[in-house]
Design a protein around this nucleic acid. Structure first.
Lengths: 118, 118
DNA sequence: CAAACCTTGACACGGTCGTGGTAGGGTTAG
DNA sequence: CTAACCCTACCACGACCGTGTCAAGGTTTG
């Protein structure tokens, strides 16, 4: 009785059923399955779906970003390689315009805003 | 005499001039500028461009993934939020098919392979 | 000064992301 | 049994990523 089917889970989390399947395909929240293959979402998964939504909208990031963070967290070789590269970058702060990648990261949002305003 | 212009930098790093500008727009390697606005790549930047190329092809990731990692490394609030979310995930290993997101992450590569073979 | 370089801005194009829909077919519940 | 639900597999669509190319104009160099 602690498991909701996909439409019920969608109602209580704010995701669409379609997106719940997509989130699963990204490996971020993988519900158990009933004997006949129905997805069964437990309470913890419902909570993680809600916080995932929060996370993504608060920082304006994508599901694929979270998926990449998950990959980094489990692939220590990747993690180490990226950290080494970033550290070699950080040692030359005079080269870096700190606002640059920020503009890059936000540009899609800005473009959306501009399009919506126009 | 330690600074190369964009075409010279392209030759020694394997990136195209177009991509060097794109990499800069992503905030990953930002060269100094001459008085008249020419990009001037120093030795350290050439090295980072080479390792960046290596990193990206070795792990089959995108520039935007590295840009996201850079954002995480400098935005500690984002980093903490993502770590919290991932940790809440990790406490329920019975739910997670470890190979799932791996398939997701590799699927584009597989699709490319399939398309190339066909 | 002319050739060879650099700059930004734009168009284009295949591929991926995020999202909705629809179709064909099993499952569950009244 | 039938209505309501679930499944997977597709099509579609706009936005974004990675990449090349071209145009119009400034800079450097022989």
């Amino acid at each position: 009785m602690e498991a909701l089917t996909i439409n019920e889970a969608a109602s209580t989390t704010g995701w669409s059923p379609r997106m719940l399947r997509y989130v699963e395909s990204a490996g971020l929240v993988a519900p158990a399955r009933s004997a006949s293959g129905y997805r069964l979402y437990g309470p913890g998964q419902l909570q993680r779906l809600r916080t995932l939504k929060e996370l993504i909208s608060r920082f304006d990031i994508g599901l694929s970003d979270v998926a990449f963070a998950a990959r980094m967290a489990t692939d220590s070789e990747l993690q180490a390689a990226i950290r080494r590269w970033l550290e070699s970058e950080a040692r030359r702060p005079e080269d870096v315009d700190a606002a640059d990648w920020l503009r890059f990261e936000q540009s899609k949002h800005e473009r959306l805003l501009a399009a919506a305003t126009a």
